[in-house]
């Protein structure tokens, strides 16, 4: 029991350290306000160019996307993109920096659980990520006049909260694997690229070729985005998304286990070769 409490305290300390860093870089805060508005707005305007206000074109989009709400569709997709971005950048860079600086070794010297450095940095991103969602919601309302019902908002929140474990598990799995590559930046670009193409971020998954659609439905973000769009844009209720939510939770368990395994394997190999600080 005491060990659990100590671990929890170590975890909180890791989160606090990350938050402090966020505060020291003011432009980080500025980018939390800028990008979530600028990027999706540009895509909504692209949608206007592609539709040309042609009723037939809009109808075609509605059929493929499940809703004629282009702005809502894009903003939900981009919210997921932002979330994924912070989850890939944050923990990956944090763990890599700790590795390079040698402080990862220092953490391994403490009795704290190995899971603390793996999952701690991700948790610190909860605050910026939620801020992202709020900013995007406000932008959607102010720029495009989209206001969801209270109920839809509530169910969206539930889907997001239940999606958290899966998303953080992805961040942790990525962070653990990235230690092998050395350079975090290019790998983030690559992995994020795959998610953008596969998970229906800026276009309906139905637009993908068959084989790509199959792989898309193996990734938790695809379900989360789809479900949020259903409740927010199509008026679906909890019963319509329960199946997906359970599936996402199951995927979270598998991904988290994989992350812990990769991290453990890395630590074991490091202890054997004595090369924790450089791979």
């Amino acid at each position: 029991m005491t060990l659990l409490v100590a671990d929890l305290r170590a975890f909180v300390a890791a989160v606090r350290k990350e938050l402090r860093q966020v505060r020291r870089y003011p432009t980080l805060l500025l980018s939390i306000l800028f990008w979530p508005v600028l990027l999706p707005t540009a895509w909504v305007l692209m949608g206007r160019a592609y539709s040309g206000n042609d009723p037939q074109a809009l109808e075609a989009f509605a059929q493929r996307a499940g809703s004629p709400q282009v702005a809502g569709f894009v903003f939900v997709g981009y919210a997921m993109y932002m979330w994924l971005s912070t989850l890939l950048w944050g923990p990956g860079t944090a763990l890599r920096t700790e590795q390079v600086r040698g402080s990862l070794e220092a953490v391994f010297l403490t009795p704290a659980s190995r899971l603390v450095p793996l999952f701690g940095p991700g948790a610190a991103n909860i605050l910026p990520a939620s801020l992202n969602f709020v900013v995007m919601g406000v932008a959607l309302w102010l720029l495009f006049g989209f206001v969801p019902t209270f109920q839809a908002t509530l169910w969206t929140l539930v889907i997001i909260v239940l999606g958290v474990p899966a998303m953080y598990a992805i961040g942790a799995l990525f962070a653990a694997s990235v230690l092998r590559f050395g350079e975090v930046g290019p790998v983030v670009q690559l992995v994020r690229g795959i998610f953008v193409l596969a998970c229906g971020i800026t276009f309906p998954v139905a637009m993908l070729p068959g084989w790509a659609q199959v792989s898309a439905w193996l990734l938790p973000p695809t379900y989360i985005v789809e479900d949020i769009r259903r409740v927010l844009l199509q008026g679906a209720g909890p019963a319509d998304v329960t199946e997906h939510v359970i599936l996402v939770l199951a995927m979270a368990v598998i991904t988290a286990a994989a992350a812990a395994m990769v991290f453990r394997a890395l630590e074991t190999s490091a202890r054997r070769t004595g090369m924790l600080s450089r791979f």
Binding site: Y50, G52, A57, A65, G193
Partner: peptide, 30 residues
Amino acid sequence: FTPLYQFVIPAFLFGAAFAVNGRATGLTAT
């Protein structure tokens, strides 16, 4: 790879989602 995943492919598939009978009629209007 970045311009491909960040712009070219998503923009193409997004645009194609507005296509009517395989033609970008919306873009023609614009």
